[in-house]
Design a protein around this nucleic acid. Structure first.
Lengths: 137, 137
DNA sequence: ACTTAAATACAACAATGTTGCGTTTAAATT
DNA sequence: AATTTAAACGCAACATTGTTGTATTTAAGT
């Protein structure tokens, strides 16, 4: 699959920064924090990285989740998502030891029976504990 | 109910700061951000307020949730919670307009069937959308 | 190769949260 | 009621996460 093409399809220019960030996100369906990617791409400008991630999110290329520490994380959208709604809303798992966040792709977020008067637009379902490698150690 | 007594029962000193913060939290089972309380108690030191909230959380007087914006919020524990585990883990609702966060006390967080190898310790279940007053307006 | 809107780099700023330390105070003891 | 002391407070400094403004550069269409 051509990453440049994938990016351009959403109306964004396929710049080197975007292509390399997308390559990481696409290779591993984990939710990455800005700080993670800043470590990987040590020469990339902080602000550019923030904007790359926000642009990806706004065009539906990635989805956004808040982790246990209140930090925003971004994960590749396996299914193409429209700009407005992310079809693949699933449960995320956040490890308390290594702090990694995993997309549980085949575990859709349940729909809740919210009290009358409230209007639900989406949800953020986060389970925390120990991931595979950390519970083994 | 005596708030001072309630605070002392958890091994904390019943100081004026703690009593007044607890009074607000206890009066309305909503999850308050540090910023909300700083507005209410404009003379209270920022750091003291952070420490009051963290102490309450560590002793099980309140529970902690992360909101849509990644901001930590604290809500009164209706049921007494042991230090380690909060028995009243329920769904929270975060309004996208007024940003208020509501405890849906009678909606327990579901237990998820996490993949083999992962060890779940707890969850943060957040539904967002429009609250009663904001969807009416 | 030219053009232009989009993207980048850099500086400055804002919000949230933490740490260290000297001073004050709640509450137990005398 | 006075004394004691660990706990809590107030203040300064700092760390991290994230945003905004603007001049410069570049992807990609003409």
């Amino acid at each position: 699959m051509d990453l440049s093409q994938h990016i351009r399809e959403r109306g964004l220019k396929a710049t080197p920064s975007r292509i390399s960030v997308m390559k990481v996100l696409e290779s591993d369906h984990r939710a990455y924090a800005h700080a993670d990617l800043e470590t990987i791409f040590s020469t990339m400008d902080r602000v550019t990285l923030y904007r790359v991630l926000n642009d990806f999110e706004e065009t539906g290329l990635v989805h956004k989740v808040i982790d246990m520490d209140g930090v925003t994380r971004f994960a590749y959208c396996k299914h193409s998502c429209p700009d407005t709604h992310h079809a693949d809303e699933h449960v995320h798992f956040n490890c308390q030891v290594c702090r990694k966040m995993f997309c549980l792709e085949n575990m859709p977020a349940p729909s809740f029976n919210i009290p009358k008067g409230f209007k639900a637009m989406g949800q953020n379902v986060l389970v925390f504990g120990l991931c595979k490698s950390c519970s083994a150690a």
